[in-house]
Design a protein around this nucleic acid. Structure first.
Lengths: 146, 146
DNA sequence: TATAACATATATATTAAATATATGTTCAAT
DNA sequence: ATTGAACATATATTTAATATATATGTTATA
């Protein structure tokens, strides 16, 4: 059971942008400081922009800013949007369920409950929680703390 | 976020074997009734034997039996063993963690807590719970209920 | 001794994910 | 106006994981 690297990179990008506060961040900057392949971040920033988490501005002096306060960004909500799906087992995808016992299956319910518990925990966290150790994070990323 | 089909097939195989009660099941039988590729089940049964969940006997008249009562088989324990890993993000694998902010990362803890909540729910279920609707399951699988 | 049934390894195909490349658009500074 | 910084978007390639297939061996019983 894994999350995609894409989700992971989304979170790291957001942590960086949040640490910079009002000053805009750029893709190149995130790539360099987090040591993440630039191409990944191009996709990540694009998607986070589409989802409304980032305000992006093009052109010289442009860059990326958070659309809202870090405390307003729920981890659970974000993960739900960046993961492709949460199809723990085949039958979670109503279309294309080939499982013979699906109509009497208890397992499906058990896994749904477990998944709900997983996401509920993440719902309790915000981006603000993630950047709480801002001094240490800033040092690790070699950025001036906001 | 997904479980592997392997884990899914393990569970379905166990449900079948549990439904047959004392009578041994065979790989061919499970494949036919569950409509799962026989090759998958060869691996699944082999592994479940290794893990001690199944007693297998070779030769004519051989087959598969549960090693213990269904109520003794914990879903959480099983899933922990059949999933390759639970490396939600890179840093979960202590070796080979490239993440720059790992030492000050709050996310890691959040995900660990969420994962624990997920598995805790599964710990509450046993194979006996899964075969509770035995009449219906037997009908769907076209097996005589035990 | 023939056959049913599991044991085990390995090879191939498919799919998803990760990585790379390419081109376009916008904006501001000069 | 022109240049270049920076995001926008699509697509292609590579890699890795998963699913599927094949092959051969071992055991036990009729």
């Amino acid at each position: 059971m894994r999350l995609t690297a894409f989700t992971d990179y989304c979170l790291r990008a957001l942590i960086f942008v949040a640490l910079k506060g009002d000053e805009p961040a750029t893709i190149d900057e995130i790539a360099e400081h987090h040591r993440i392949n630039r191409n990944h971040l191009v996709k990540v920033v694009f998607r986070l922009g589409q989802l409304g988490y980032l305000h992006t501005s093009r052109g010289k002096g442009g860059g990326i800013r958070l659309a809202d306060h870090p405390a307003k960004l729920s981890l659970g909500k974000l993960v739900r949007q960046t993961e492709r799906d949460f199809a723990l087992v085949e039958c979670f995808q109503e279309h294309d369920c080939q499982c013979v016992i699906e109509p009497a299956c208890v397992l499906k319910g058990a896994l749904r409950t477990a998944l709900a518990a997983f996401l509920e925990v993440l719902d309790k966290y915000t981006l603000a929680d993630l950047v709480r150790p801002s001094r240490n994070l800033a040092r690790l990323l070699a950025v001036p703390a906001a």
